[in-house]
Amino acid sequence: MTDAVHEVPGRASTHPRLTGTVRHVLLIAISFVMIYPILWMLSGSLRPADELFGGDAGLMPSQVTLQAYSDGWFGLQVTFGRFFANSLIIAVLATVGNVLAASLVAFAFARLKFSGQKFWFALMLGTLMLPYHVTLIPQYVMFRSLGWVNTWWPLILPKYFAVDAFFIFLMVQFFRGIPRELDDAARMDGCSPWRIYRKIILPLSMPVLATAAIFSFIWTWEDFFGPLIYISEMSQYTVQLGLRSFIDSSGTSSWNELFAMSLLSLVPIFLIFLFFQRLLIEGIATTGMKR
């Protein structure tokens, strides 16, 4: 009798331990498959050029050399050093713009009161879903008539006008969680909205500012479409455009150099991932970031 009663809990206690091992084996297998392509790229970038492309799916090069990195770095008329510098400047300036503009606007939506607030907020949310293609051509025409084609302005300036509503939304959510009593007390003491924003809200919002900055940096760094349509002169290229030219100019003959440069273009993202993983994952889990 008692055995029969204990049967269900008994099974429940052995079951998880057994499936635990199975789970780990399964997960390690999936992890391996997921990461394998990247390891293969790394191994490819360390191979000498004459080691033929086909026939080897393995990870061990017959001979390890950094030749592909130095050849690839100087593989185009302009060095990859220049592309990296360009990308870095654009990404940093764009990130500053995004964080600055989005935090100002989010402060207005979350902490101030003004007429028409709900209307503007609804409009702002409406632009979240709007594909950028619909503003693409008139924006291009506008920037072209300003003489900004082949400059970085079209890639940077819009961020200072909070065009990516996503960041506003992210910050509004966070600002709303900060106790209102802090603002009220400061207001009693005669603090202006600017001081409240600067001295109370911003210092308390470092996690969300960091999350927005990280995503903003990564997205600008990886952006291909914007530079593709606006930048035509190689000295102004971003890393992504440099890689594209590299494919066109080298074909499959110097694939190891292509791999080396591709891998280098991912290094900043790897580093951010390594140091800010927790912020990234929390950012996605709480807001449902798109990627």
Partner: peptide, 9 residues
């Protein structure tokens, strides 16, 4: 104040 902060957007 609200519209000043909203201005960039």
């Amino acid at each position: 104040a609200g519209y000043l902060f909203l201005a960039p957007w």
